[in-house]
Design a protein around this nucleic acid. Structure first.
Lengths: 329, 329
DNA sequence: CTGTTAGCGCGTTCAC
DNA sequence: GTGAACGCGCTAACAG
């Protein structure tokens, strides 16, 4: 089975391949009659242009590489949906690669993107990526790249789309304290992650300046977060407020609280809100909208692609977050 | 900024482009000395082969199109991870497209895959896809295609990888009844979905033949499932067992039960097990392993790609499921 | 061991 | 209006 080419269509209609090409593209020079004939044949015989040939010619693949630390159920699906929504309108599609939080894999993924001739790269850094040395190839090839969500302090080589983690955590602390909490449990994620450090810092800053007692606990999975919550609550029965820094941590905390049937504690979580809304109407959350992060990141990479020549200044784009109060408040 | 080509490298070293090509590919004909020189230049100047040109030449893109009904947090991330694990070993990558459960979008996605010159397509059908008319182009172009998870009854044009939903639900019913349940609540998903019908049928079949009372309830979201659970339990306080057909439904049910602090009811859910294990150790679940579904589907498409000429018989591959008992049993 | 040539399928410039 | 020719970058067959 051989695929139909414009040459074949040309042979059928006794016209030159280039005429077929123009006919299919509605070139004004071609007569309407011939155009219709060409289109009819192409349609009926299921002609589909050879992507590789078109890309080669146009030097563009209409594909964006998306590199993420892991394909998890938390947050990522929303981000992808947001990216897709913004990109598909413009005819771009996604090559999705996971670095599994390995810097080496991330470097490989970057190479894969380059090899595939993507028009741009969207990347959220792996936890191991303490520098951007492995990005050099992207610069050499002059491929537009945007870092989103998980990034590196003080890099100014690439555009960024993110939330202000420190400030978000600060807001969460403010919420609990304003609601009378005097003894707060901080349930944080993997303490090697930059995002964990920032959220911890923002939260602690507020508590310290307001002289509020707190306990810090780290967990690397929902399962661990559940176990740790039970342990911490067992150790200290004065705890009256909990901060969960992510959906993953929150789901563990929720399981723990629901197991011991404890509802009196104030809770706040940084989340896109889907899980908190379902699991309990009593969660307050700081909405960190993955979908919006996706669309904003996509928009940024697109405008970079369109202004590839003009070497504009790189910027940090901080998304707004919003405090959502629980139903009972 | 122009990308380096083998022609450029050839010019630098005063050799023919084809020599460079062979040198980079470790062709035995090229002298080691020259090979090293070529590789050194390529490395130092960050040469990366033009994918479009290679694809055009080789008539292969090393890309698999993945079309799914929606990018949700349930199940899909595992499937993608499984597919990736199997594919990346072989140098294949994924173009991921969501049909948003629309048949028209699914048809568009199929076209996008064809346009991008994917080497194969993995697809889980949208709920609207009541026939496969829109797959015609795939056959015309002779692109390998495998349907996984969500499929159509009695199609035998494409290979399939799936679980036996009817039987899985049957096993769940057996579990609850053997554990003494006399009054069972079936929490099902969207009743327009084939998967819902099959699981309902399998479950009901068993209950009817064992003369057990039951109530059926449909929900199209976790949120709805939660509300409905509360309603059904309010209407009938004899309910002693609940079947949730998916993670999404289960999370709603769990929220409901935890809100009214009801732990006595037996529960079973069809799930990959991650959420049940976290949310409550008292869930039994029929393990439907997304990761395994992914690897099996990927393996199938790969072998189809490799045996493209031999028009082998199409098969249904049913994955094994496993009943996992709760901790307290 | 290395160079020459041709062609993958398409789009574009130039000619008629 | 349409055809002819060229080149995008790479590889494989054929020479030598």
């Amino acid at each position: 089975v051989k695929r139909l080419t414009i040459k074949d269509i040309g042979a059928i209609l006794n016209v030159n391949p280039s005429t077929v090409s123009r006919g299919l593209k509605d070139h004004p020079d071609i007569s309407i009659a011939l155009k219709n004939k060409i289109k009819a044949v192409a349609e009926s015989m299921h002609y589909v242009p050879n992507a590789a040939a078109v890309n080669l010619r146009k030097q563009s693949s209409k594909v964006i590489g998306l590199i993420i630390p892991e394909i998890s159920m938390y947050f990522i699906p929303n981000v992808i949906n947001g990216i897709n929504a913004a990109l598909s309108r413009l005819g771009f599609n996604l090559l999705i690669l996971s670095s599994n939080n390995s810097k080496q894999k991330e470097a490989e993924n970057i190479k894969i993107c380059c090899n595939h001739g993507v028009d741009g790269i969207l990347i959220s850094l792996s936890q191991e990526s303490n520098n951007l040395d492995h990005f050099k190839i992207v610069q050499d090839l002059d491929i537009p790249l945007v870092i989103f969500d998980k990034t590196l302090k003080n890099q100014n080589t690439y555009n960024e789309v993110l939330i202000d983690d420190t400030n978000a955590a600060n807001t969460c602390a403010d919420y609990l304290v304003k609601n009378g909490c005097k003894n707060i449990l901080l349930l944080l994620g993997d303490n090697r992650l930059d995002i964990t450090k920032k959220r911890e810092q923002g939260f602690k800053e507020y508590l310290i300046s307001h002289k509020i007692k707190f306990t810090i606990n780290y967990a690397t999975s929902a399962f661990e977060a559940k176990a740790n919550t039970l342990i911490e609550l067992g150790k200290n029965n004065k705890i009256d407020g909990i901060f969960a820094m992510s959906d993953e941590i929150m789901i563990g905390m929720h399981a723990a609280l629901s197991e011991i049937n404890l509802t009196s504690i104030k809770k706040i979580v940084i989340s896109d809100g889907i899980l908190p809304k379902i699991l309990s109407p009593n969660f307050a959350f700081l909405k960190h909208d993955g979908y919006q992060l996706g669309t904003a990141s996509a928009d940024t990479i697109i405008s970079e692609i369109n202004n590839k020549n003009t070497n504009s200044l790189k910027t940090q784009q901080y998304l707004l977050t919003e405090l959502i109060f629980p139903n009972n408040q």
